[in-house]
Design a protein around this nucleic acid. Structure first.
Lengths: 114, 114
DNA sequence: AAACATACATAAGAAACTGATGTATATAAT
DNA sequence: ATTATATACATCAGTTTCTTATGTATGTTT
């Protein structure tokens, strides 16, 4: 995650959420999507991404499917049934954490406002 | 930090921000303040807090002052000049990271809205 | 020929945490 | 009286997650 060593565990949530929206993605594609969505501000490094993908697969959240495209190997990941459940869990965990963070850092903050 | 394994890197920001608002706080007080502000949802563990305080002190962000209160020792921390500068830096870093996170996880999200 | 982009992967080391343990005092509950 | 809880500090082994570097391989651009 380049400059940002900020919220531990959010990489898993990012992966799961992107796969919820896309059905099927490969590693490199994920790094590019994140870079694009954040105007280059968050760069997921390979050293962080691949181990995270392997871990999620080992935990039964993702399945893989290898495809050959232009003499290049692509490993596509998709959500399993468990993975689909995990997305909501991880998302509400993260949203609740961010809410609590706002309550600590900005006492004026109320949910639903800026 | 109890249930949250999400807080990595944000603990320093929390400490600095609370000290910006309070001039002077001791460790235990910080844990209680955070617990109170988040309705018990975030609990800062001693194993995380004290090393973080020591590190910030070693980096010149905080100074300490020991006080005796009711036969109990309290170690009060306050921001140094460097510490005061660091608060703004860490805060905008975190806010920008949270913004990017929202852009990844909720494509509908726009800053200034819910 | 060199640099950059695509695409996977591993591995050493750093950093931030968890959970346990330890010391010490004060108060509330059984 | 004794136990549990609260206050208040601290350290430490172990885990997880990250960074940075390295490696393999192909395709395209300079």
């Amino acid at each position: 995650m380049s400059n940002n060593n900020l919220i531990k565990g959010s990489l898993q949530t990012i992966i799961l959420k992107l796969l919820e929206e896309n059905e099927k993605m490969y590693g490199y594609e994920i790094t590019q999507r994140v870079k694009e969505l954040t105007a280059g501000e968050i760069k997921i490094t390979e050293g962080a991404l691949y181990p995270a993908l392997h871990k999620l697969e080992a935990e039964g959240m993702l399945t893989t499917e290898i495809q050959q495209v232009d003499n290049r190997v692509r490993k596509y990941y998709s959500l399993t049934k468990s993975g689909k459940k995990e997305v909501s869990a991880k998302m509400s965990e993260l949203q609740s954490f961010v809410g609590n963070l706002q309550r600590i850092l900005d006492p004026e903050w109320k949910p639903g406002l800026a």
